[in-house]
Design a binder for these strands. Structure first.
Lengths: 347, 347
DNA sequence: AAACATTACGCAAACGTTTTCGTGTTAATA
DNA sequence: TATTAACACGAAAACGTTTGCGTAATGTTT
């Protein structure tokens, strides 16, 4: 277990100064060809690599960016990470991923850790707890310290920085409108409690579509799912209404897939008896029976744009930098959970 | 955009030396109470945090560990990450996640990057390309440089380091045995090409179970899926055999879920006409129709153990450290894709 | 031979921190 | 009053790197 080779050790080996070694390895003509070559050979043999910490300290930049996300066991976030990694590779940056687990405390802990010189900038999707608490001082401090910040997905209006968000309203509209086009008359929405902004926005789109088509709004069909209790039970209640829905829009993949599961249990045919549409084109959607029609939110595009914005800010020279908010459009992915086809051909 | 506050700046502010500031902030009694307090107050106001790069450089350790995985859009790896994060938090470490995208080149790139002082140790699941190439010099160099290494999931026999692996043989045995118990007579396996070790091992377990029960081995029922071509088409061929299987073991979740999809298309009843079992209890398994029976490999446990082993090595003082290989057992998760129940109650 | 240019290297500062060892001043003791 | 102890702080080295500047020893001009 020999320890890492350094300039100092090489210098000692050849009885020259550290600067000579440094210059030799950089191929400087200040150093005679002879000395240069032998130092290079020696360094190559011992696999010398300059210590990043020292380099970063000297250069006052690390070519590393930090990413804080609420959870990792989540298809959307893994797609975002892919997008970020992609751009990071292209532009020579590394990514440090931290998890907040939706906790306010951990979000701050992670930010403090990253902000101490380790990274050149930070990308964050805000934790649910932070959103509930509505205390955003840690973001303001970060910005005050001159560390570039990009918020994505879960963003905060009042923080002045670059942002990348999904067009949740448009996506909700797309979903609901599609169900209307498919002939559904009573369209339910499986959404989140009122403190989760993405749920609110997707519901907004849903309401907009209903309104434009002169559909009445039935509060019984708006189910705010409390994740502390059984999702299945809550959705089950919807099916037991005296006047049950014939179309369901789940604001995420799990809600929609669970609705499919329950519809099966109830002996309902999908999409003939009930059409179901989800949000986020994740792993599950393609493997339900029938496959789930869904609103795709382009996670990797969001990741790419988030990092691009961050790097723009990091590498910006002038003083008049203007923050942007980018809205990533959603797309409808049509599968069989909403496609009305003649009964006899669907099994 | 004021830049970060440092000891030097605080020292200047009060016209004292840097060391005085450092000691004051650490509450040293060498510094008079008066000076100590005012420096502390000032530092708190400006939110002083010591620069991590400088600290790490000085301490010759970073309390950060590196993780290199082949891909992130993958339920198993996200579970592993959760496990690692969990232990890292408990023991005051940070995690830097890098993706190799199954590429040999990127794996080396990532390792070089991490090895230059950024991390105290590295956890790796080897990329497929590396496994194919069978060139492992980068691992040997790492170990020669005295950087602790733990391999997990995809490991390499000949590398001398700590390892954490799934009991793939046992899992394959579990799966096949279960199908036998359920009364299947012709059991197919959807596995990987021969250079992927996990596929080989799971197949080994499958063969062992067949052998113990005096089942003949039918090469037609051993399908090595080539992911460069359509998975669906390849599995479809299995169903078209003159003597098709009545039980299918997919060595991962996608293969098994795809088999379910195709069985539906063929109008087969699951599990009555054909029973299907998967490997890895991921997101999909719970939402197929019927839900997929599967062999669970405990990803988060693997992550936890991997980091614990790594930290043991990092923090080990004596010279007689012995490497271990931990085998994580698998469990059978019973769902309806294999459970034979009377036809009329299953829909 | 004097003046100058070139070659080949070393010195030292800087990045931000911690910590050991001095050291000057004051206060307490003999 | 001389010696010592306590106090309160500063200097400097160390972690590993890069780079501007200085300089001794050559080599090249007039």
């Amino acid at each position: 277990m020999k320890s890492k080779i350094t300039l100092k050790k090489i210098a000692k080996e050849f009885d020259v100064s550290i600067s000579t070694v440094s210059k030799a390895l950089k191929g400087s003509h200040e150093i005679s060809k002879e000395v240069r070559e032998k130092i290079k050979a020696f360094a190559a043999y011992y696999n010398y690599k300059p210590n990043s910490l020292a380099l970063n300290l000297r250069n006052q930049k690390t070519k590393t960016i930090g990413l804080i996300i609420p959870e990792i066991v989540h298809h959307f976030f893994t797609k975002v990470i892919s997008g970020i990694e992609h751009v990071a590779n292209e532009r020579g940056y590394n990514v440090m991923i931290c998890l907040s687990n939706e906790s306010y405390e951990k979000e701050i802990l992670n930010m403090d850790m990253l902000a101490n010189g380790i990274v050149d900038g930070i990308i964050v999707s805000v934790a649910k707890e932070t959103e509930e608490k509505e205390t955003y001082n840690h973001f303001k401090e970060l910005i005050n310290n001159g560390i570039p910040l990009v918020l994505f997905d879960m963003v905060i209006e009042e923080i002045n920085c670059n942002k990348v968000i999904t067009d949740d309203i448009g996506g909700g509209y797309l979903a609901c409108n599609h169900l209307i086009n498919m002939g559904c008359k009573r369209i339910a929405i499986l959404t989140t409690p009122d403190h989760i902004s993405v749920g609110i926005k997707r519901k907004k789109g849903y309401l907009k579509a209903l309104h434009e088509n002169n559909y009445p709004i039935d509060e019984d069909l708006i189910l705010k799912i409390d994740e502390k209790n059984s999702i299945e039970d809550q959705i089950n209640n919807l099916f037991e209404l005296t006047n049950p829905p014939d179309g369901i829009f789940g604001v995420n993949e799990i809600y929609a897939a669970t609705a499919i599961k329950i519809a099966h249990k109830k002996g309902l045919e999908i999409p003939d008896d009930i059409a179901i549409i989800g949000f986020t084109n994740g792993l599950i959607s393609n493997f339900t029976t029938p496959p789930l029609t869904t609103v795709a939110q382009h996670g990797s595009t969001m990741g790419e744009r988030a990092l691009e914005l961050l790097l723009d800010e990091i590498e910006y020279q002038d003083t008049d930098y203007k923050y942007k908010t980018e809205v990533i459009k959603t797309d409808l992915i049509m599968r069989n959970s909403t496609k009305k086809i003649p009964k006899n051909t669907f099994k």
